[in-house]
Each structure stands twice: as structure tokens, then as C-alpha cells.
Amino acid sequence: MLRFIARRLLETIPVLLIIITATFFMIRFVPGGPFTAEKAVTPEILRNLEAHYGLNKPLHRQYLDYLGSLLHGDLGPSFKYPNRTVNEIIAEKLPTSLELGLISLLVALALGLTLGILAAVRRNTWLDYLCSTVAMVGICVPTFVLGPLLVLLFAIHFGWVNASGWYSPVDRVLPCLTLGCVYAAYIARLTRGGMLEVLSQDYIRTARAKGASEARVIFRHALRGGLLPVVSFLGPAIAGILTGSFVIETIFQIPGLGREFVNSAFNRDYTLVLGTVILYATLIIGLNLVVDVAQVWLNPRLKFE
């Protein structure tokens, strides 16, 4: 298993290098630059700015310089925020996105697993239909509809929580619920499917025949196998929750990294674009590895090779 992980980690290096190179040159070839603004800066000021950030050097030189500082863990200065480095911005914004993501994930798992297991165990009853309907609605209603709806109800009509912001613990409720619900819907459907398949297996019948209680059959025997599809979904889902939090962060005005990620591209903040892309790429690669390990661990039929 250690060899497996080590090999996968080694494979990561060229993948990251390709991502960095592609991003570096792609963002440079987009029209406009970090100092392009509605009101033009004078040519002298523009030259000073470009000299300060090293943008007057040849592109390949800038690329090598960037790789050099990256080796030291330095993601460079931000173009948009004149007195900040990309490292600082990420260090400040990532925890917020992680908090949003983790709570949402817990919401998604709690809701999704409950709905999915209920639906599978009470298959073809009104409970199953109800859970499946809720899940279907959850998949169909996008976050930018669900979010404002929840705000209208709980913030504006009842006045229980703030409509936007990330000030007090209660401000976490609506955004995490919104983001969690969408993923809960997928998880519910996958859990139901996975559980149904497992519940029809011989070893479940054997367990029941041996007189195991229903709870023991479900939670001890069925769930481990039934969760396999959910686990393979979780890798990309966690990455999606982390990187795709842009919409939620905008609706609820959460100071997270998702907004910086998207806005940095609009601002042509070259270093911030690269910094966030590298971070997200690393996260996705890492999470996929964790999922692969978890799958082998959950499914005795698989082996590390």
C-alpha cells in the first residue's frame, strides 16, 4: 500500500507541472492585463508597474522565475492587491472555504445517507417515494435558486438569520444547508442504489437467516458495500464542494477562496490565478488518491497493484 501511494505521489509531479505550464501561458494569452482599466494609466506609470512586477522580461524568463520561486513555496505578489502576496491571500481565504466545505459535506452526508438508507430499506413504500422525490428535487434545483429562496424565507420573512455575510456561527446555517442539499441529493440516490444492490446479495440473506437483527444487517453488513458508489463519488464531490463554492460564496457573500479564484481570472491577476489553480489541482489529485485507498479498504475484492 505504501508503494502504491508513493508511486501515485510521484506521478503527481509531471501532472502538476503540465497544469502549471498550461495555466501560466493560457492566462498570458488572454487579451488585457492586470493593469488594463476603464481609465487608462499613463504609459510611464504602466512601464513602472510592469518593471515592478517583472512583466517587462521575456515570457520564458518570467516562467522560469515563477517556477524557481514556486520551489521555495513562494506564489508571488498579487497584481490586484498591491501590498499582498498570493500566499497571504490563500492563507486567509482557504480556511473559510474549507469550513464552508466541511460543514456542507457533513450536512450532505447526514441528509443524503439518511434519505438513501431509508429509501432502500423501505423500498417501494411512500417513504421511498418521498425520499426519492426530495432527492430528485435537490438535484434539479440549482444552488442559485435554492439559496435566495432560503434567504427570502429565513432572513427576510422570519428575520432569524442574516441574508449575507459570514459573521456569527448562525451565518453558517443557510450557505451550508444550500451547498449541502445539492450534494445530499446525489448521495441519497447513490446510497439507495448501492444499498439495494447489496441487500439482494446472498450474504445479506445469510446474515438474516442466521438471525441477525435488521439494524445489524443494515449497518454492519449492507452499509459497507452499499457505500462504495458514494465513496467513489465523494472524491470529485469534495473537490467540487471546495472549488465550486463560488456560487454559494457569491450568493451569501462569504469571504472564501472560490470568489478569489473566479475573480482573479477576470482581474488578470496572473499569480493569483496560478496560485489557486495549483492549490485546487493538488487538492483534487490528493482527494482522488484518498478515495482510491478508501475503496480498496472498503472492498476486499480490490487490491493495491
Binding site: P148, V151, A155, G159, N162, A163, S164, G165, Q253
Partner: peptide, 15 residues
Amino acid sequence: IDSVDAEERAFRAGQ
């Protein structure tokens, strides 16, 4: 609040 819609909702919520 860089989203105009979110800002309007915040105003209505008394923020």
C-alpha cells in the same frame, strides 16, 4: 457585497 442581488437582499433583511 459585490453581488448587487445579495446586497439588495441584505438591505431587506435589515443589515
